[in-house]
Computed example of a mutant assay.
Amino acid sequence: MTLSFELDPAVSPALRDDVLTLWADVSNAGGSVGFVPPVTADEIRPELVKHLVAMAEGRTRLLVGRDGTGAVAATAFLTYNTHPLMRHWVWLYTVMVHPRHQGKGYGRDLLEAAADAARALEGIEAVRLTCRGGLGLERFYGSCGYKEVGRIPEAIRVASGDDRDEIFMLLPLA
């Protein structure tokens, strides 16, 4: 079974709730998507609202992957860079695959769909993302074509005494 991807789906209350649930499930399974477990949907909701506002303002695009049952199984947000000298690349944020789908290649599929979506955007030549060190994420992204282009040591404080590097990754689209 593969995922079916949709860029810019209509945001209904059901989709909003599905993305919120996905985000909580990924976070609570140890996913590196801005929170440390345990976390509730109510704690995540303000971050999702920020993404939804950016979508409404045309600054962010939502990519949704649905499994064979139609359930939201994966998401990523593509955000335009607003700096006038950096508008030729987009940020990829909140890259998530539901824990029940881990190990099926869906993460790779999601990144490929995100790259395809970025290629379709006028003037976009690259995708940038950051990831949390200490989890091997940079190896995964590297295997999908991303190159490490920078690292800030101990920039992310997961817990007292547990600081992780913030790793910057770039995928040229040409």
Rank of each mutant, 00 (worst) to 15 (best):
D162G: 02
L78M: 02
G107V: 04
S143E: 04
D18I: 11
A10S: 13
R87S: 08
K147P: 09
R164T: 05
Y80C: 06
R157I: 08
L171M: 06
G145I: 05
E154C: 11
V33F: 02
E43L: 03
Y106Q: 09
L92C: 15
A29P: 09
V11C: 11
V39R: 00
P9N: 06
K147H: 08
N28T: 00
D17G: 13
G161T: 00
E154S: 11
V127G: 07
D109Q: 15
P13F: 15
Y93W: 14
A155N: 02
V72G: 04
D25M: 00
R16C: 04
C144M: 11
E122T: 14
V26H: 14
P9H: 12
S12M: 12
T75M: 13
P38I: 02
F168H: 10
L170H: 14
E112C: 07
S143G: 13
R59C: 08
G68N: 10
G142L: 03
P84T: 12
D42N: 11
A113R: 03
S12E: 12
V149F: 06
A29T: 00
Q102H: 12
M96C: 14
L7T: 15
P13V: 07
V95Q: 01
L171R: 10
A54F: 15
R139S: 12
N28L: 04
I156L: 15
C131I: 05
V33S: 05
R66Y: 06
V97I: 12
R16L: 08
V36A: 06
L7H: 15
L48Q: 06
L111F: 12
E154P: 01
A74Q: 07
H98S: 01
A120D: 15
L129Q: 09
P46S: 15
A54C: 08
D17F: 12
T75E: 08
T69M: 11
A76L: 02
D25L: 02
A114G: 00
V149D: 07
A159C: 09
A114N: 10
A159I: 01
D116W: 14
L62C: 07
A56I: 06
A24M: 03
D18Y: 08
A29L: 01
V11T: 03
K104D: 09
T60A: 11
L78N: 03
